[in-house]
Design a protein around this nucleic acid. Sequence first.
DNA 1: CTTGACCTGTTATGATATTACATTCATAGA
DNA 2: TCTATGAATGTAATATCATAACAGGTCAAG
Lengths: 174, 174
Amino acid sequence: MTVSEQKATDRAGPAASDLAFAHHDHAHCSTDALARAEALTAAKGARMTPVRRRVLEILLEEHRALGAYDVLSRLVSEGFGNQPPVAYRALEFLVEQGLAHRIQRLNAFAACVHAGEDHAPAFLICRDCHTVAEAEAGAARAALETEAARAGFLVERTTIEAMGLCPNCRTHAA
Amino acid sequence: MTVSEQKATDRAGPAASDLAFAHHDHAHCSTDALARAEALTAAKGARMTPVRRRVLEILLEEHRALGAYDVLSRLVSEGFGNQPPVAYRALEFLVEQGLAHRIQRLNAFAACVHAGEDHAPAFLICRDCHTVAEAEAGAARAALETEAARAGFLVERTTIEAMGLCPNCRTHAA
DNA sequence: CTTGACCTGTTATGATATTACATTCATAGA
DNA sequence: TCTATGAATGTAATATCATAACAGGTCAAG
Ligand SMILES: [Zn+2]
Ligand SMILES: [Zn+2]
Ligand SMILES: [Zn+2]
Ligand SMILES: [Zn+2]
């Protein structure tokens, strides 16, 4: 990473204290994200319907990734449709709108904690407590694009994920 | 990326001409990989059985990722067992031995073209022709670890994949 | 030749995801 | 206001990906 790239990362990236692992006022974190989601979809003319809103709320409850069927079972118990497309369509919408991310490693979905910020996310997945934190992947993505460019490959989308131990679980393990 | 990191990449990484996209003597590329696989497993005392060898050969036929069921259907037509565990177990073995990689994005598997080299792979996946090239991810992984360290997260395994257009398909598209 | 580890075959099931079509809902234009 | 239209949702059926559990076979060390 060059010095200028590091500075860019420092400007754009979340502070370490923003990360899911740190203690924080999660009720605020969650309602804030939901409010921003409403504003963003309204601005784009996209429709934040009840199912979609509820799915986002469910994802926001914890900093974990949920499978489509986990989400679906929650929806069913609240009177929404009980077939897979109900969950998959709402999740697809949220991902398209940048309000949620798909975690490839887990075949699961997590709410975006930086909605509207046009960020390059990496995901830090704790194998122990299953918390998923969204980290800044600008530098990693740049390195990947550099490598791709050597091959003449045009990068359109990237998947950058790390599996390991979060600070809390490291401490417990030690 | 620092200058020293760039140099490290240049030393360790494959030349651009090594990549799957470039024209190359693939018969040699393939038989060579198979020979190295035999040597590596022998050295480790692991058993390269007929199914396992055949699965590796199948993966080596092209620089693409194959799903477990694609592999399985090939095995069936050659007299091996026709149940999913037959394919999954052979693939699991190859991944454990570092002879193949799992491509998360595709739920599929590709032969490793740098077996035994202790590399940090990134995968460049062409959305058009489905070729999968293995690129050097040392720099990207280092950037990801730096970011993870800020959060106190201990990285154990990484998934670094890019979806996009390979040089050939870029040309055709243009 | 027995033992024990490992490998393979097979059944059954579970988990993830999509296609297709019918119905309902929101809203822009007549 | 009253449709026409496209969007969203509900539902059934199916496709795709993955693992658990157990039985039987192979092979080399003892
Ligand atoms: Zn939070
Ligand atoms: Zn944890
Ligand atoms: Zn080749
Ligand atoms: Zn291509």
